[in-house]
Amino acid sequence: MIGATLVGIATSAIRLATPYLYAAIGEALGQLSGVLNLGVDGIMLMGAFSGFYVTLLTGHPTLGLLAAVGTGGLMGLLMAFVSVTLQAEQGISGIGLYLFGLGLSTLLFGMTVGTVKAVAGFPPTPIPGLSQIPILGEILFSHNPLVYGAFALVPLAWFVLNKTPFGLKLRAAGQNPLAADSLGVNVIRVRYVAVIIGGILSGIAGASLSIALLNVFQQNMTNGMGFIAVALVYFGGWRPLGVLAGAMLFSTVNAIQVWLQVQGVDIPSDFALMMPYVITILVLASMARRRIHVPAALNKPFERGGE
C-alpha cells in the first residue's frame, strides 16, 4: 500500500515536471547568454495551440510537435529581435510577448476550433524491457515520449553548456560580452540562437500538455506555468541539474498535495495548494550558503563598441 502510494506520487511528479523542465531549461539557456525572457508562458500557449491544431487537422502528433517547434522558434525569434537587436528592456518585452501569446492563442483557438475537443496525441510508450523493472520501471519507463524527452534534455543541456564550444560561447556572451566579443565570439548571434532554442523548448513545453499529457487545448491552459519555469531557473542557479532538482521538488510537493486531497486528508484545500510554492521558497532559503554564478550580463543589452 505504502509502496504503491509512493510509486503513484513519483510517477505523478515526473509527469507534472515535464512542461517545467522543457520551459525552464530553455529559459536557462537564454538567461545564460544574457537574455531574461519573461514571455515563456505566452510561448508555451502558442506551442500548445499550434501543436494541438496541427494534430487535430492531420491526426499526426509528430507534425503537431513540429508545428510547436516552429511556432516556439518564431516567438523566440521575435523576442530575440526585440531584446537583442533592438536592445529593449528585457523584463518588459517579455511581458509583452506573454500578453501577445496569451491573446493570440486564445483568438486563434476561438476562430479555428472554437470548442473543447480532444486529439489523439502521443500515446504512453513504455520502454520495452526497462518498464518491466519492478517499481522503477513504472516510475521512470512507462511514460509518454515527450516525458522522456524532457528528462533526456537535462544531460544534453549540461553537455552542450559545459563540453561544447557553443556552450562556452553562450556562457561567455552572458558573463562578459565585451571580452567575448574581443575574442571573436559573435555575441549577437549567440544570443539569437540561445533565445530561439529557448523559444523552441517552451513551444515543446506547451505541446507536451496539449498533445501528450492532456490532449486538449483550452485558453490559458498553462495557467502561469511559464512564470514558475522562470522561477525554477533561479532555483537551479542556471544549472540543468539544479533546474531538474527544482522542477522535481515543485512537482513532487504538488503531487503530494493532490494525493493528500484525494485521500480525504482533512486540511483546507487552499493550504494544500500553497505547499509547492511555500516549500520551494523554504528549500531555497535553507540553502542560503550555496554558490551561485549569476550571468553577469543578464538583462543587459549588448552593443558592439557600446557603453
Binding site: 521575435l78 509583452g96 500578453l99 491573446g103 486564445t106 483568438l107
Partner: peptide, 9 residues
C-alpha cells in the same frame, strides 16, 4: 490582449 502585447513589444 494580443494587441496590448504588441504595443508593449
Amino acid at each position: 490582449v494580443a494587441l496590448n502585447g504588441l504595443i508593449v513589444l
